[in-house]
Design a protein around this nucleic acid. Structure first.
Length: 103
DNA sequence: CGTGTGACGCGAG
DNA sequence: CCTCGCGCCACAC
């Protein structure tokens, strides 16, 4: 196709939408799967401009902590994660390594 | 077409 | 262990 049917941002949207319930991914992993291992920053940028329908709450930083710009704040982010059955302590996901989704 | 920016990542001290 | 700073990429203006 002349124009990329799936731009970086579309790939990110698909990846985020593909995150199963109760699982989380890091911005770096999403960026890497999207084909740009160093575009983790951009993933966060797309999150802010991207559709709020997507489960952005399942996306956290490499430390497994809640993001600061989430719609509702870290507290809102943490609350949603706990709603998914994820145990969160002080904005940090407990047993993050096991909660991390690995395709 | 050039500049600035960010819901980040990683190395070094 | 913690803190600091730079780099990095695509998107918005």
């Amino acid at each position: 196709m002349a124009s990329p049917a799936h731009t970086f941002r579309e790939v990110v949207y698909e990846l985020v939408a593909s995150i199963p319930y109760g699982r989380v991914m890091t911005y770096g992993d999403i960026a890497s799967l999207a084909g740009h291992p160093h575009a983790a920053r951009q993933v966060g940028g797309l999150a802010h401009f991207g559709p709020t329908e997507l489960p952005w709450h399942r996306v956290v930083n490499r430390h497994g902590q809640c993001a600061s710009g989430y719609h509702g704040g870290k507290a809102g982010h943490q609350a949603v994660l706990e709603t998914e059955g994820i145990v969160v302590k002080n904005f940090q996901i407990v047993d993050f390594d096991s909660r991390r989704w690995r395709p």
